[in-house]
Structure formats: C-alpha cells, structure tokens
Design a protein around this nucleic acid. Sequence first.
DNA 1: AATGCCTTACGCTTAAGCGA
DNA 2: TCGCTTAAGCGTAAGGCATT
Length: 274
Amino acid sequence: MIDIFKYTNYREYLKACYGFLKENNSAFSYRYFSMKCGYKSPNFLKLVIDGKRNISSQSIEKFTIFLKLNKNEAKYFSLLVEFNQAKSSAQKSQFAQEILKHSTFKRLHPLGQDYFEYYSKWYFVAVREILATKQKLDPKTISAQLTPKVSEAEVESAIETLLRLGLIKKQDNRYVQAHQLVTTGDEVSSSAVAQYHKNMLDLAAKSIDNIPRELRDISSVTVSLGEENIPRLKELIQKFRKDVLELSAQDQKKLNVYQLGIQMFPLSQCKDES
DNA sequence: AATGCCTTACGCTTAAGCGA
DNA sequence: TCGCTTAAGCGTAAGGCATT
C-alpha cells in the first residue's frame, strides 16, 4: 500500500492510492469507491482528487476506513485534510505546526520544522543576509544591529537553524553565507511563507513612522489593465527583482540589509464578459 | 449571488452474449 | 471459432438543490 507519511497533500496521496488500487485490481474504480463508502455520486473521489470537492469530517472517517488506515495514519490523514482545506493562513499555519509535531512526520522530514521557522520569521533571512556584509559578526552584534530589535537568544537560535539548513556555514571562525539552494521544501513548511509576507508588510507599515524618509522609499501606483497585460506586469516585476539582486551581488561595500517588497493585487473585480 | 455537496446525464471503451 | 450486437461499466461534465 502507499505510505501516507510520504505525502503532505492528501489529494496527492489519494491520487496515488487510486493509481495503486487500480493497478492491482482492475475492478477498482471511482464508482467502486463510492459504492463501498456509501456515496451515490460515482465520481466523488475524482472530484476530491481534482481539488473540486472538499471532504467533511464524516467523509474523513469514511475514507480512512476504506483505506484501512491505523489510528496514527488516520490522525495524520485528518490533519492533512484540515491543513489543505483551511480557510485562513492563520488556520493553515496552525495545522501545519500540528503536522510538523507529528512524530512519524518528524522522522521522515527532519528539517521540516527548521524550514517552517526559516519561512515564517522575518529575521531569519535578515540574519543570513547580514552575514554577507563585510563585518566581524557574532550573535550579540547582530542582535544590536537588527531593527526592530531581535534578542541575542533569538539570533543564536536562528543561526543554529540556518546552519542545520546549510544556508550558512562556519569559516575562519566566523559565519558566512553558504550557497545552498533553499528548496521549496514540502507544502506544509512552505505554508509559513504567508506568515513571512504578513510580517514583512507589517514592518513596512511601521517603517513609515520609524525610519527616516531618506532611508526608505514607500511608493506605489494605481493603474487599470486588461487581463492580457497581467503576465507582462509580472514579468516586469520579476525583471526588476533580478536587477536588484544583481546590484547587490556586485556591491563591494555591503553595509546594511534592506528589504524591498513589491505588491500587486486588484482593487476591483469585474469579470470579462466580451 | 455564491458556495458546497450530491445527483443525473453523456459519450466512450470493454466485455459479455449470441447467431452463424 | 469468428464476427457482430448489445449491455455494462468507466471517466468526465453538467445540473440541481440547500445553505450561507
């Protein structure tokens, strides 16, 4: 049978189960599944797999019984469903943390918790970036330099996590950036990215009051566009980000760490009816 | 009005049935 | 045994109704 703990998305897990059952038993079908579980709709499983239907807590039980999951697996399955179907990012993050705490998950994804922290806390990225400036740095000085204030203990903990993730390394008695690619990781850990963005937007808002005007640039434009120009707009944003990274890469006298955020979202919602 | 859950309908493939 | 017909079963799409 398929090992559920290899999955962080219950729909993908169900898809794998479907494939496995189908391969091993030609009589298995979406219809058979519905019949066994007491659904009158023959394609319910397919709709769920395709993400077109969510499942209720009652259905969770039907599924786990059909799949013959033991208590531990059923609990994990239930968490995956709740995580996947969570309405808000706060809910999502809560279920993500429960999944990360699950002992079997932990064994299979030892860095899951580390990735989650890296994604969710704004200063992890800042700490890593500050190490690229040409200064002698220890947790104490890093803590003193970061605004808003981050405690020495938090910096130390961040450094330990970054070391485990291979994002920094120790060299000549100081920490330097390691060019380990940040893999997108699993869906659960990366759900924390939403929290990261919220944190950063919050810092951006506060910077209006706390940071002198000459050290920041807060600006925006409001425009109207047709749908066909949205991909073009995204390209422009992407290119701009790339240019900024290039500028930083060529800078020989890095002194401070800056955050540059770009937001684009609709202020109106009108469907194209032409 | 939109969403979510479920049923009904459609068109295709496969397998069973049957006469020659 | 062969070849055709037909029914059953499949995946997918659309429809419908209650709830929000």
